[in-house]
Amino acid sequence: MFTGIVQGVAVVDDIKTATGLSSFAIRFPPHQLEGVTIGASVSINGTCLTVTRQEKDLLFFDAMQETLGLTTLGNLSVGDRINFERAARIGDEIGGHLLSGHVHTTARITAIDRPENNCTLTFEVPETWSKYIFPKGYIAINGASLTIGEVTGNQFNIHLIPETLRATTFADAAVGEQVNIEIDSQTQTIVDTLARMGYDRPAS
């Protein structure tokens, strides 16, 4: 499990591709790798991956074809910056909301507004997932736990403070960029339960 509090930014150092598999070498800030072990879980742009090897400040991960197809990991290039979070431990503070690291879908950035000391990003999600997105609800974008701002149809925005921009890759965001989305599990459970009870049907 993860908390959605991004611990820092790492850089893709190398990518090796094979049939149905990509292997990533990612360079982390050295102070963030204390106690890391082979088999540990790390959130890479919101996707839970398993450490397969370590060389100094490099961690290695494998991603199968299904993961590459469902997330933005298949679009990564050498030199790209990514958000990361190591798996939460018992007793850790939950500063965001609990995440599984299982990406539900991707979204596209459709607009960026940068007034002084602020940044607002607008995203478009597939219609299928818009039913889980509510104003002031939680959502995870590239592994960061964020509060939803305004919602219009299948588009929504988030408002970012300078600290979030400093600690994540959102400062590099560009219109048209695809991001990983993990829907809040509690919201999904409530919406799906109500749907099974028939409350999502239009009144007759």
Rank of each mutant, 00 (worst) to 15 (best):
M1N: 04
F2E: 03
T3M: 01
T3G: 00
G4E: 04
I5A: 03
I5W: 01
Q7A: 08
V9W: 02
V9A: 05
A10K: 04
D13V: 01
D13Y: 11
D13S: 13
D13L: 00
D14A: 13
A18P: 04
A18R: 13
G20W: 03
G20K: 07
L21F: 00
L21M: 10
S22R: 15
S22E: 14
S22F: 01
S23L: 05
S23K: 09
A25D: 06
A25C: 08
R27G: 02
H31M: 05
E34G: 15
V36Y: 10
I38Q: 13
S41K: 10
V42R: 12
S43F: 06
I44G: 06
N45R: 11
T47Q: 12
C48D: 12
C48A: 12
L49N: 14
T50G: 14
T52L: 10
R53M: 05
Q54I: 06
E55M: 06
E55F: 06
E55L: 12
K56H: 15
D57K: 04
D57R: 02
L58W: 01
F61P: 13
D62T: 09
D62A: 13
E66R: 09
E66L: 12
T67N: 15
L68S: 08
G69P: 00
G69H: 13
L70C: 11
L70V: 04
T71N: 15
T71V: 12
T71Q: 14
L73G: 13
G74Q: 15
R81P: 04
I82N: 04
I82D: 07
N83P: 13
A88C: 11
A88I: 07
G91A: 08
E93I: 07
I94Q: 10
G95I: 00
G95S: 00
G96Q: 03
H97F: 08
H97K: 04
L99E: 09
V103I: 10
H104Y: 05
T105S: 12
A107V: 00
T110M: 06
A111N: 08
I112A: 01
P115D: 01
N118R: 12
C119Q: 15
C119T: 08
C119K: 07
T120F: 02
T120V: 10
T122I: 01
E124Y: 04
K131Y: 10
I133R: 12
I133T: 11
I133N: 12
I133W: 05
F134S: 12
G137H: 11
I139D: 15
I139C: 11
I141F: 05
N142I: 00
L146C: 07
L146R: 07
I148Q: 14
V151P: 11
T152R: 13
N154E: 12
F156C: 04
P162D: 10
E163M: 11
E163N: 11
L165S: 09
R166T: 07
T168G: 09
T168H: 13
A171G: 15
A173D: 02
G176A: 06
Q178W: 04
V179T: 07
E182C: 10
D184H: 09
Q186W: 01
Q186V: 05
Q188V: 11
T189D: 09
I190P: 06
I190H: 04
V191F: 02
D192F: 03
T193C: 05
T193L: 03
M197P: 06
Y199F: 14
Y199T: 02
D200V: 00
P202V: 04
A203M: 08
A203G: 05
S204Y: 01
S204W: 00
